[in-house]
Design a protein around this nucleic acid. Structure first.
Length: 290
DNA sequence: CTGGTCACCTGGAAGC
DNA sequence: TGCTTCCAGGTGACCA
């Protein structure tokens, strides 16, 4: 393998199936894992090794953060909000990003773009595909142009069947694409969209606006159950994840349909199928999902 | 406003 | 063996 980049080991299955992307549960797990170690801690230095990810990194990040104490970490959708007295550092992990606590002296790998040093340890941002983002806002982060248009939090009480029913009226778009539209609902990526629709027994191509009230109810519950199952799976390995060297990737999870095209449905045994919606692979069971 | 498509970036796998 | 092509993914930008 390339220097410094951990070898994920021999894997026979496709990485499609194994490499879970940071969706809402992974981001929330990261937040919960970092909080107890970092809240209240003072930053000593910042090391930026790459000038930009999706956007240019804030300039003079070291001068901005050194000597400041981290007040807390919030999450909005898939954005992590690191709170300081004088502003908020917004971090998005894109599709390949991770944040881990490492010894500050540990040599950085090829894709370790940013270190925020707290004493002997560093919060290290690794993002091989550089789809992630690091932004700084002095004023209200919720008003930031990337944050303000975000949709409802799927784990909030406000997200339920009634909300989903109302929000989808008049929408012809396939329900899977609606689930993935961050301006409608945040945090549901390609994997959990397929998984949630399977749990709800709804075909991914169903026009969102045609879903009955009852099916919206079922889908809202399925989304919550899917995300909560992932959170539970991640929670059990949370400390290992945050403090490991990154070799193991995101926590493993058993999917019902994602990445399993051609295999047998775990519920009915039918051959699972794959189709493309919005340029994205979509997996479903032709018998369980109508 | 809605819906559809593209670009960004990289590593790994598949194809030739 | 080595090159080329394709694909994965989140999301903003841009089009009709």
């Amino acid at each position: 393998m390339l220097g410094g980049f951990p070898n994920p080991g021999k894997r026979t299955a496709t990485n499609l199936q194994e490499a879970a992307m940071p969706e809402l549960p992974e981001v929330e797990i990261t937040r919960r894992g970092l909080l107890p170690d970092l809240a209240g801690r003072r930053i000593d230095a910042v090391v930026a090794r790459h000038a930009s990810l999706r956007y240019p990194l804030p300039r003079a990040l070291g001068r901005l953060l050194a000597g400041r104490s981290l007040r807390g970490i919030d999450r909005r959708g898939k954005y992590l909000l690191f709170r300081f007295d004088h502003g908020t550092l917004i971090v998005h992990l894109g599709m390949s990003g991770s944040l881990r606590l490492v010894p500050a002296a540990e040599p950085a790998g090829r894709h370790d773009h940013l270190d925020i040093v707290f004493g002997r340890r560093a919060l290290r941002l690794r993002d091989p595909r550089r789809f992630g983002a690091v932004l700084w806002v002095e004023d209200d982060a919720s008003a930031h142009p990337l944050i303000a248009p975000l949709g409802i939090e799927p784990l909030s009480c406000a997200f339920d069947g009634a909300w989903l029913h109302a929000a989808t009226r008049g929408r012809a778009t396939p329900v899977k694409l609606f689930l993935m539209d961050s301006h409608a609902i945040v945090g549901i990526g390609n994997i959990y969209a397929s998984e949630s629709l399977f749990r709800a027994g709804i075909h991914p191509r169903t026009p969102a606006g045609r879903l009955s009230r009852a099916r919206c109810q079922r889908l809202a519950e399925a989304v919550k159950a899917t995300l909560e199952a992932a959170l539970a799976a991640g929670g059990s390995s949370l400390r290992d994840f945050i403090h490991s060297d990154g070799g193991s990737g995101w926590f493993q999870q058993q999917h019902f349909v994602y990445g399993r095209e051609g295999e047998a449905c775990r519920v009915c045994g039918a051959r699972l199928r794959q189709l493309r919606l919005g340029q994205r692979s979509t997996f479903y069971c032709p018998r369980c999902q109508r």
